[in-house]
Nucleic acid binder design. Structure first.
Lengths: 201, 201
DNA sequence: TGTTCATGTTACTGGTCGGTAACATATCGG
DNA sequence: CCGATATGTTACCGACCAGTAACATGAACA
C-alpha cells in the first residue's frame, strides 16, 4: 500500500487550534481519504500536535464524525443561502442549484462527494459516522424534492431521485475516468433536459 | 478506527491456492474495502497462509491489481455472454442488460461498484490499480454506446452517459441510504423511461 | 506576582500490518 | 526411491499508527 500523504503541507490559516485541526482534517480526509490519513498528519497540517488534537477530539473516530458534521453544516448552509437569496422564485432556485452543480462537477480538485467517499471507506463497519451520512443524504433528498415540488414539477420525488442519481454518479465518476472522457462533463446539460422533460405538465 | 474484518470466515471452495486466494480477496476486498482487509485475513479466508499468498502475489498492491483485473474479467465475460446470447437482437440485448441492472441494484449484498470503491480508497495515490479502473470504465462506456447505437438510439453517446451516471449513482447510493429510502430502488424504471424518451426518432 | 488553563514537546506503549527467513511437509514425475 | 517443486508453519522484523504520560511553556487574569 502506498502512503497517501507522506508529508502534510502546512495548511495553517490562523484561528484557534480546534478550528485549524478541523480545517486540516477536512482538507486531508477529503483529498486522501479517511483511512490513509493519520492523526499526526492532521495535527501537523494544522500547525499543532497530536496531544492538542486529542484534547479537542477524543479519538480519530470522533474527529471523523466532526469532519462529516462540518461537511454537512457547510453544505446545509450553502443550500439555505441559495434558497434564501432566491426566496419565492423557484425557477431561480433551480437555476442557482444548477450553477452550483456545474461548479462542483467542473472543479479540478473534485474528488467525489465526501459523504459518499466516507461511506465507501467505512462500509462493513458500525462506525457512528455512517449515521451522519445516512441522515445527510436523506435530508438532501428532501430538500431537492421540496425545491422541485415548489418549482411545479409533476413528480418531484421521482425527478429528485433521478437528478440525485445523476449527480451522485457524476461525482463518483470523476474518480474513475480520465478527465477527458468523464461523462460528468455533460451532467448539467443532462439535468437541464431532464428537468425540461418533466416541466410542469 | 474500527476493524472491519476481525476474523475472516473460511470461504474455502477448493481449487489451487492461487485461485482460492484470489477468490477470497475478491470477496473480502469487496465487502470490507481494500485498505481495511489485511493480507493475513485474505490468506486465512482462502484456507492458506501469508507465505503462499506472497509466493503467488508479490505484494498486497499486486493482489489488489489482480483483484480488480478479476473483477474486470468477470464483468467483461458477463457482458459478452449477454451480447452473444441475443446477437442481432439489439432490443433483447438492452432488455437483458436492464435485467442485470435490476439484479445488481436489488441485491442485498450490493456495496457499490468494486471499481469505483477501489478508486475512492486509492484516491490521491499513484497506485497502478487506478489505470485498470480507468480502462475498465472507459471500456464499459464504449460497450454501452455500441449497444445503444445498435439498438437505434439517436445519440448513443449521450444516452449511454446518462444511463451510466444513473447506474453509477444508484450503486454508490446503496451505501449512503437506509435501504428503505434509497432512490436506487427506482433505477430500472428510470432507465426504461429514459430509453423510451430517446427511442429511435 | 502568582495561579490557572490551554497549548507545545518529547517520549513512550501496545497493537497492527506488510513482508521475509528458515525450516518442515507433502506431492509428483522420473 | 529420489529429487524437485509447491505448500504449510512458525517466528520474526521494521514501519506505522492510535493513544497516553509527564513535563515544559506561555498567556491571561486576579
Amino acid at each position: 500500500m502506498k502512503k497517501a500523504v507522506p508529508h502534510a503541507p502546512q495548511t495553517d490559516a490562523g484561528g484557534p487550534p480546534r478550528q485549524r485541526i478541523l480545517a486540516a482534517a477536512c482538507e486531508l480526509f477529503y483529498k486522501h481519504g479517511i483511512r490513509s490519513v493519520g492523526v499526526e498528519a492532521v495535527a501537523e497540517a494544522a500547525s499543532t500536535n497530536k496531544m492538542t488534537l486529542y484534547r479537542h477530539f477524543g479519538s480519530k473516530d470522533e474527529l471523523i464524525v466532526a469532519y462529516l458534521q462540518q461537511v454537512a453544516e457547510e453544505s446545509d448552509g450553502r443550500w439555505q443561502n441559495m434558497m434564501r437569496s432566491h426566496a419565492g422564485d423557484f425557477a431561480a432556485q433551480v437555476e442557482a442549484w444548477l450553477g452550483y452543480v456545474e461548479q462542483v462537477v467542473s472543479d479540478f480538485g473534485e474528488r467525489g462527494c465526501p459523504m459518499a467517499n466516507a461511506a465507501v471507506e467505512l462500509q462493513g463497519t458500525e462506525h457512528p459516522a455512517l449515521r451522519i451520512i445516512e441522515d445527510y443524504k436523506a435530508r438532501k433528498r428532501r430538500q431537492l424534492v421540496a425545491m422541485l415540488g415548489g418549482a411545479g414539477y409533476a413528480n418531484p420525488e421521482r425527478v429528485a431521485d433521478e437528478v440525485f442519481l445523476l449527480f451522485e454518479g457524476a461525482r463518483i465518476s470523476r474518480q474513475c475516468y480520465s478527465v477527458r472522457e468523464c461523462p460528468s462533463t455533460r451532467l448539467v446539460e443532462m439535468l437541464r433536459s431532464l428537468l425540461e422533460s418533466h416541466r410542469s405538465r
